[in-house]
Amino acid sequence: MPADLFREGDIVFRKGTGLTSQVVLSADKEGAYSHTGILKQLDGKWYVVHAVPDEPDYEGDVDRVKLDPVERFFSSNRASSGAVMRMEIDSVKACHAAQRAFDLYRAHILFDHEYDLNDTTKMYCTELVNHVYLKEGIDLSEGRLTYINFPGFTGDYLMPNDISLNKKLHLIYIF
């Protein structure tokens, strides 16, 4: 992994290997990725801040905003493919977005199983990434939402593809 290319606030995408990822990809037929997060550097090591269900760190762990080493986030048992993308913006704003994401991790924000963009007391992956950039005045989704009509989930949702289509996002790394 070319960690020397990474910068704080870079956005990471992965195509997951689990059932939840398959559901996301079936709902988002245009998308190549099922999950997203944001890069944060701590003590010289790269981590991904992301909100994820069904990836407990220990028995009894709840679905929540997590901080995983980038190698774990992209490990072969979690990702069949992935990408790192960078916004064409002031790097200070990207660093602030990464710090906001890290603060949400430290606040123990739970995963939003309701997928409700109007409630930021809990968050899902794309909601987290878009939210921290919105605080910097940047709407990663550029207003895009995906309409989904699945049993139990009907409505407009923010999908990884809604973010990856941003015209100011540039590919840094792909596998």
Rank of each mutant, 00 (worst) to 15 (best):
H96R: 15
Q99E: 15
Q99F: 12
R100W: 13
A101R: 09
L104S: 01
L104K: 12
H108E: 12
L110T: 04
L110Y: 10
L110V: 03
F111L: 05
F111S: 01
F111V: 02
F111K: 02
D112S: 12
D112K: 10
H113A: 09
H113V: 01
E114H: 15
E114V: 06
N118M: 11
D119V: 12
T120G: 06
T121V: 10
K122F: 11
K122G: 00
M123T: 11
Y124L: 00
T126V: 01
E127D: 11
E127A: 14
L128G: 04
L128F: 08
N130L: 01
H131L: 14
H131I: 00
Y133N: 04
K135R: 08
E136G: 02
E136F: 07
E136N: 07
I138G: 03
L140K: 05
L140H: 07
S141D: 08
G143R: 06
R144F: 02
R144P: 00
T146K: 06
Y147H: 15
I148M: 06
F150Q: 09
G152L: 08
F153L: 14
T154G: 05
G155R: 08
S164T: 11
L165M: 12
N166E: 02
N166L: 06
K167R: 11
K168S: 08
K168D: 10
H170T: 11
H170Y: 13
